[in-house]
């Protein structure tokens, strides 16, 4: 296959990517910026596909195109739609002066210099033969990793420690959001058409999440993509004005939040007790353990992203245990 023929394709794709990035940052209208950013994410997903990085493309499709957009849109200031004056800080008006223009030029120049230097260094790096020691080591050890998708093998076995910390980052974020206290007000009940969308979209998203979780072992996919998809289901539910969006309350919620890190740690420490290295799975068990960890991680990721969208701790209006139980039963989805 001749790659030069993809040159036009690449050129246009990259042009769109840069154009969207630029446009999304050139405007002062928050809403416009966010929509452009969503478009940017969509195009990026295609670019990742083009570069044979389907794992990343999946993540980008779930996050860049979907969830980030939803998150950002929810944070767009509600008071002054489309106004460029988004800061309530009166001092800002001052700075619309010559000094600001100079500063802008300076920063632009600096960033251009950065781009140039980075490009210079990158070209140097690319001009030598690619370093193949590590990829080879990965493929040589793939059999022992318990999965056949090398990306999953890296994420959950070779560099599982990174992933453990990554889950800790997620947990931190959600705890931070919790500590901010309140949820944003819910949305109005949506019209019947939207409801119609939700009725088929949510089950399909749940199914897709399951699929991605499973497929991660031998093909692109995995806990994160699955979790994001699951969270997307919750986001849609929330948008229809439902107060129950599949998130449990109280203790159960905390368990789900902690599940990713918790199970990971539990596995790692158990192995340590059994005389193996921390997070060193026995090859025979690796596949099963990875699936276990990924399942827990998926739940945590979904809960985190969803809570991020909700913007805080779900109101716990538990009056008594019975009501609580009732709610739990109602909210299993």
């Amino acid at each position: 296959m001749n790659t030069t023929n993809l040159l036009v394709f690449d050129g246009l794709l990259l042009f769109s990517i840069v154009g969207l990035a630029w446009a999304s940052l050139a405007t002062t209208d928050e809403r416009r910026s966010v929509i452009l950013f969503m478009a940017f994410g969509l195009v990026l997903a295609v670019a990742w596909g083009r570069l044979l990085a389907p794992d990343v493309a999946l993540a980008e499709a779930a996050i860049g195109a979907g969830l980030s957009g939803a998150l950002l849109l929810a944070a767009v200031r509600k008071q002054s739609p489309g106004s460029s004056h988004t800061h309530a800080n009166p001092d800002r008006n001052y700075s619309e002066s010559g000094a600001k223009v100079v500063l802008q030029w300076l920063v632009t120049l600096l960033c251009a210099a950065l781009a140039g230097t980075l490009a210079w260094a990158l070209l140097h790096a690319l001009s030598s033969a690619p370093h193949d020691t590590l990829p080879r080591a990965i493929s040589d050890n793939l059999v022992a990793s318990g999965v056949s998708n090398p990306v999953t093998a890296v994420l959950l076995n070779f560099r599982a420690y990174d992933t453990l910390l990554e889950l800790a980052v997620l947990l931190t974020a959600v705890l931070g959001i919790f500590s901010l206290g309140q949820t944003t007000p819910g949305y109005q009940p949506a019209g019947p058409v939207f409801d119609g969308l939700v009725r088929w979209l949510v089950p399909v998203l749940i199914l897709t999440a399951g699929y991605l979780l499973w497929v991660g072992a031998h093909a692109p996919g995995g806990a994160f993509q699955a979790g994001a998809t699951l969270a997307a289901a919750g986001v849609v539910l929330r948008l229809t004005g439902r107060s129950r969006i599949g998130l449990p309350d109280g203790f159960v919620l905390r368990i789900i939040m902690a599940a990713g890190v918790g199970v990971f740690l539990l596995v790692g420490l158990t192995l340590l007790l059994l005389g193996r290295p921390f997070l060193g799975y026995p090859p025979a068990w690796a596949g099963a353990l990875i699936l276990l960890i990924e399942t827990a991680a998926m739940l945590s990721i979904a809960a985190t992203l969803l809570l991020a969208f909700v913007g805080g701790q779900p109101q716990s209006t538990a009056v008594n245990a019975a009501a609580n139980r009732q709610r739990e039963e109602n909210s299993r989805c």
Binding site: G191, V193, F194, G196, L201
Partner: peptide, 16 residues
Amino acid sequence: LAVLAASATSAHLIAR
């Protein structure tokens, strides 16, 4: 089918 359903709905929503 998914795209069809999604875009039909979103078109309606945007129009609405």
